Computed example of a mutant assay.
Amino acid sequence: MRGLAALVLVAITLSGCGVVGRTSIKTVQMAMQGKPDVHPTTGDVAANRYPQIKVTGPHGGAVLVLGNVDGNRQAWYSSDRSIVFLEDGLLVGTHGGTPELHGMRIDGNNPFHDLRQIRTSITIQRQYDVMPGYRFGMTVTGTLERIGIEKIEILDATRALLHVRERLNGQDWKRENHYWVDPGNGFIWKSVQAIAPDASLEIIQLKPYSQDLKR
Rank of each mutant, 00 (worst) to 15 (best):
His113Ala: 09
Asn185Met: 13
Leu86Pro: 04
Asn177Ser: 10
Asp88Thr: 08
Gly67Cys: 01
Lys207Ala: 00
Val65Met: 08
Arg73His: 10
Val45Met: 01
Arg215Pro: 05
Asn109Cys: 03
Thr123Tyr: 06
Ile152Trp: 03
Arg126Trp: 04
Arg73Val: 15
Ser15Phe: 02
Pro99Gly: 11
Ala160Lys: 11
Lys207Ser: 04
Asn109Gln: 13
Gly97Asn: 09
Ile147His: 12
His59Leu: 13
Gly21Asp: 04
Leu86Phe: 09
Asp114Lys: 09
Gly97Glu: 04
Ser79Pro: 11
Ala62Glu: 03
Phe85Lys: 06
Ile203Ser: 03
Thr94Trp: 04
Arg135Glu: 09
Asn185Ser: 11
Gly148Tyr: 09
Arg165Ala: 13
Thr27Arg: 06
Phe136Leu: 14
Ser191Gln: 00
Ile149Arg: 11
Ser121Lys: 14
Ile154Trp: 01
Gly148Asn: 08
Gly142Ser: 09
Leu64Thr: 02
Gly137Trp: 02
Gly137Ser: 06
Gln193Glu: 14
Arg81Ser: 14
Ser79Asp: 13
Arg73Lys: 15
Gln193Thr: 02
Gln125Glu: 12
Gly89Val: 00
Gln29Thr: 11
Val55Gln: 08
Asp198Glu: 11
Tyr179Cys: 08
Leu101Ser: 06
Ile118Val: 15
Gly16Phe: 01
Asn48Cys: 07
Ile124Tyr: 01
Trp180Gln: 03
Pro99Tyr: 10
Lys151Glu: 10
Tyr77Gln: 04
Lys151Ile: 03
Thr56Glu: 07
Ala160Tyr: 03
Ala199Ser: 14
Gln33Cys: 08
Leu101Arg: 08
Gly186Lys: 02
Asn109Ser: 09
Asn72Pro: 13
Leu213Ala: 10
Leu66Asp: 05
Leu90Met: 11
Leu7Cys: 07
Val181Tyr: 12
Asn185Phe: 11
Pro111Ser: 12
Glu153Lys: 15
Asp172Cys: 09
Met138Glu: 15
Ile147Thr: 10
Leu168His: 07
Pro132Gly: 13
Leu155Val: 06
Leu4Val: 13
Lys174Glu: 02
Thr143Asp: 08
Ser121Pro: 09
Thr141Phe: 01
Trp173Cys: 13
Val84Asp: 02
Phe112His: 14
Leu90Gln: 05
Gly142Glu: 00
His163Tyr: 07
Asp212Val: 01
Met131Asp: 14
Leu161Val: 05
Arg105Leu: 11
Arg73Cys: 05
Glu202Arg: 12
Leu7Pro: 00
Ala199Gln: 06
Thr98Asn: 14
Gly16Asn: 03
Ala160Glu: 13
Val38Pro: 02
Leu90Ser: 03
Ser79Arg: 12
Lys54Ile: 04
Ile154Ala: 05
Lys207Arg: 11
Val19Thr: 12
Glu166Trp: 03
His178Cys: 05
Thr158Trp: 04
His59Tyr: 15
Met138Arg: 10
Glu150His: 14
Leu91Arg: 07
Gly97His: 07
Met1Val: 10
Thr139Ala: 15
Thr141Ser: 12
Glu87Ala: 12
Ala46His: 04
Ile188Asp: 00
Lys26Glu: 01
Gly18Leu: 01
Leu14Lys: 12
Val55Trp: 04
Gly142Tyr: 02
Leu90Asp: 04
Asp44Ala: 00
